[in-house]
Design a protein around this nucleic acid. Structure first.
Lengths: 302, 302
DNA sequence: CCTCCCGATAGGAAGAGCCTATCGCAACCA
DNA sequence: TGGTTGCGATAGGCTCTTCCTATCGGGAGG
């Protein structure tokens, strides 16, 4: 049984006339006669009492009309809903972002994203790299922003911008007077984030220190905590460039690094993600907003 | 778009796997691949994110699933409802009966009808011939029991039984002593029903009296009223045989008629009435119950 | 009695749906 | 690293369905 058959059924029942119903359906009268006859045979029920004047729905037919109308209406709802979903730049878009990036990047790009993609309902989700990847693969996120260079056959993406690391020191730190600071000089009293943050490993690697050599050093649960610790004079750290404003507000001294250590922010989606155009558009808006950021950051933070 | 397409959509969405969904639908995997692809093109929406492992429903797909499920369920409801309606001997059956027959026939045939046609939901409707015919033609009744011999191209039916008329006299009436009464003898002081009752015209015709010759004679609104009037000695009348029991209870003298006037009860339905088997079955049950009634009535009422 | 309008039927063309066989790809295992 | 497995996509061919136009048959009304 076809949705079309049910449409024919409704039309004949409404017009009580094969010819007019056929015209309403945009088919010929014999088509309707044959299809209704087939439907009657399929259902095992006489649907219309035909005379030379009219075709009156039988009692059985009237009992079926309700269900038939429901089915036809729902079918049309599928088409109508699909029509509204057609725009790949529209709908909910769940974007995962690592915690050392989200608080500093989102304020910059949220307004441009809303402007460039007004029908995209962006839902940011903050979590660490591993969790983001897991959620992305579980289809619980549509794309994620990472600082690591994941390469997997089921994932695809593009680099958006380079973010330099900066040395963060208490104002009274012995190194605070230097113009530029060598990464290895920070190693002695560096404070790092808790495990799971990609920034932790990247900072340690930049200053040539291994995770195992850390001992019982502080493991801050957020960059914000880390900055407060540095401001209070407990040590030094490496911060991502976008956090420089917040760091300066906290009364921390920032200095560029002599080896220009940094990280590259990438947007990543599943290889077969059908809304890829939306993911690429989101990435492009972010990249455009951050274009030239690396240079200005390197220059302005001195 | 087809209901089958929606079933395929639901199956793939449920199994997240084309092969398993195909097995569940009883078709081959390529069939499903092609149909889903066509549906995606029709809707303009990617429904599944395919990988070598699985086929995950997209967000758009999930928004369509509800409507799709509604449509498929309603389609199945049409089939299921039709299956229950398939028995032509089942369902509501509205039977119109004339007022001079209903009170006396229904008590006789109601139980046999329930026994012979247990799933037929019989709804008696009492009205005069003209009103019954109108309602029958308006599809508001499924069949009617008449005492007149209507012949119309849009109506069909069969005779069920012959019902003799009997002379009804007050016990102290001059004619009450006779064995048999000539119809014309009743003409002098006959009481008849109000206009519209077929029995009125038939009684008048039997005793050779014209409607116009009646003058301001009593016009009883029901046979019951008429019998009470006769019992009270206001005149004579002709009653249908089935009413003899009630008439005798009222203390009325009944006598057979010398010319054996009577009426034939027929069941009538629309020529193209699809439930004709049910109408014929109802007629046959009534005819069987009344078989031999004319003879026994003629013999027993003397 | 003829004409008109209704639904039913016939025959042929076009399209849709399904099958089997096969491809291409990715993952897995040895 | 190279074969195997399992997935969805594709190709070709068959069948069935659906639709059309043309025509029939019957009832209604002039």
């Amino acid at each position: 049984m076809n949705l079309r058959d049910l449409r024919y059924l409704l039309a004949v029942a409404e017009h009580e006339h094969f010819g007019r119903a056929a015209r309403a359906c945009g088919v010929s009268q014999p088509t309707l006669s044959v299809q209704i006859r087939k439907l009657e045979e399929l259902l095992g029920v006489t649907l219309f009492e035909r005379t030379s004047k009219t075709a009156a729905p039988t009692a059985a037919c009237r009992q079926l009309l309700g269900h038939a109308r429901t089915a036809v209406t729902a079918g049309e709802a599928v088409l109508a809903t699909a029509r509204n979903l057609r725009d790949p730049m529209a709908g909910r878009f769940r974007l995962g972002i690592i915690p050392t990036l989200a608080p500093y990047l989102l304020p910059l790009v949220f307004a441009p994203l809303r402007e460039a993609l007004p029908s995209l309902d962006l839902e940011p989700w903050e979590d660490q790299t591993a969790a983001l990847l897991e959620r992305l693969r579980a289809h619980e996120l549509d794309a994620i922003l990472l600082a690591t260079d994941e390469a997997a056959p089921d994932l695809d993406g593009r680099a958006l911008f380079a973010e330099p690391f900066l040395a963060a020191l208490p104002p009274d730190h012995p190194l605070a007077g230097r113009e530029t600071i060598a990464e290895t000089d920070l190693a002695r009293d560096i404070l790092v984030l808790a495990e799971g943050h990609c920034l932790r490993d990247q900072a340690l690697e930049a200053c040539g220190k291994s995770t195992t050599a850390l001992g019982a050093a502080l493991r801050a649960s957020s960059l914000s905590t880390l900055l407060n610790m540095v401001a209070a004079g407990y040590g030094t750290t490496l911060i991502p460039g976008l956090a420089s404003g917040v760091a300066q507000d906290a009364g921390i001294v920032l200095r560029p690094l002599s080896a220009s250590a940094g990280r590259t922010i990438r947007i990543v989606w599943r290889t077969h993600f059908p809304q890829r155009p939306a993911a690429e558009a989101v990435g492009e808006v972010i990249a455009a907003r951050l274009r030239g950021y690396a240079e200005s950051a390197a220059a302005g933070a001195v």
